[in-house]
Design a protein around this nucleic acid. Structure first.
Length: 327
DNA sequence: AACACACGCAACCGCCGGAGG
DNA sequence: CCCTCCGGCGGTTGCGTGTGT
């Protein structure tokens, strides 16, 4: 016998909601809040199950819902987020204010998926998108459009002296140049256009909703045996999300040198409106670490739109060690 | 005008994990 | 430890509407 659906005990209404039902539910929740959903229908005078009420409220009646079609900016953001988060529609919706997971899921299944396939991409693997992320130079305009809010962590061969990010050529979404650095405390808010000290051990400290990040590698260059195990013996899987509780990935020099374009990309949480949620660059626990030494890193916008220099360049001071770590 | 088909959207279904008894 | 309830989530379904023939 299969699982019973909600409301099996009583004969409850199903299907589309009538304006009268909407009115009752709206009036009740506005006045009392939803509290325990299972008791809502009874208290609101509805012959529905609690689940159905909850869904109706979340997807339709909620006052903060944004009506109307999705903007191309929103669509791009959904594509980016989906490439990082997968089909975690609720998490994607959390980054798009006024949009519901159901709405986004419908959009994806009915529209975006097809568009991606028409472009020759695989909506499941985002192969072409990933390629765009990994090679902005091959199609700068497209990459710029699709990835205008993505962050990349680029690993370059050479090393130089400065230990601070050069933000001189960075722009934010509004086009403001040269945002001032924010580096007054151990915890520094990380925004794509703000600088932070870098000859340190990086960590990402995130609020629960912002808990996902993703390191992405050139797939063709990826070999598991080139990856190290973390301290707990768990293999770090590239191209998969991680958060502050995920074991620390460690990369060997041999692995890094095998990356022909010498780049590692980190997808980070996106702010719904195009700016970034607070990601903290924690330099309080990093003294003495040289993990980033001997390389030049850059955090920045994967812009690629013809500008060669919109990433946040980071130059480390030392030139000795071989590993990169995430604390 | 009638029909078939495609599409978008709202809602349902079933699974899962957490809380509490 | 087991069971039940509940909320949350992602996948799927089915209806209403638009469009083409």
């Amino acid at each position: 016998m299969g699982r019973r659906s909600c409301g099996y005990k009583q004969k409850l209404r199903k299907g589309l909601w009538s304006p009268d039902e909407d009115e009752k539910l709206l009036r009740y929740i506005t006045k009392h809040g939803h509290g325990c959903w299972s008791s809502v229908p009874k208290l609101a005078g509805l012959e529905r199950c609690g689940k159905s009420c909850r869904l109706r409220w979340i997807n339709y009646l909620r006052p903060d819902l944004k009506r109307g079609g999705f903007s191309s900016q929103e669509e791009n953001l959904i594509i980016q987020l989906q490439s990082v988060l997968g089909n975690r529609w609720s998490q994607i919706a959390a980054r798009l204010p006024g949009r519901t997971d159901n709405e986004i899921k419908n959009l994806w299944n009915s529209s975006i998926k097809k568009k991606l396939m028409q472009k020759g991409g695989d909506p499941n693997t985002h192969k072409t998108l990933s390629e765009a992320m990994l090679s902005t130079s091959t199609c700068p305009e497209k990459a710029s459009r699709e990835l205008d809010t993505a962050i990349s962590l680029n690993l370059k061969e050479d090393s130089s002296k400065p230990s601070l990010i050069d933000v001189s050529s960075c722009r934010n979404e509004k086009g403001d140049d040269n945002l001032n650095a924010s580096k007054t405390s151990a915890h520094q808010e990380f925004f794509p256009n703000k600088s932070f000290p870098m000859n340190r051990y990086p960590s990402i400290q995130q609020r629960p909703l912002d808990s996902i990040a993703c390191l992405q590698f050139p797939v063709q260059n990826l070999s598991h045996d080139q990856l190290k195990l973390d301290q707990k013996g768990i293999l770090f899987e590239p191209n998969k999300e991680f958060n502050s509780r995920t074991p620390v990935p460690t990369f060997s020099r041999s692995f890094l040198s095998a990356q022909t374009d010498n780049k590692i990309y980190a997808g980070l949480p996106f702010h719904p409106m195009g700016t970034f949620n607070n990601i903290h660059w924690d330099s309080s626990n990093c003294s003495g670490n040289k993990s980033f030494d001997s390389n030049v890193f850059s955090w920045g916008l994967a812009d690629g739109g013809g500008s060669s220099d919109k990433t946040l360049q980071l130059h480390s001071a030392d030139a000795e060690t071989t590993d990169i770590k995430w604390s």
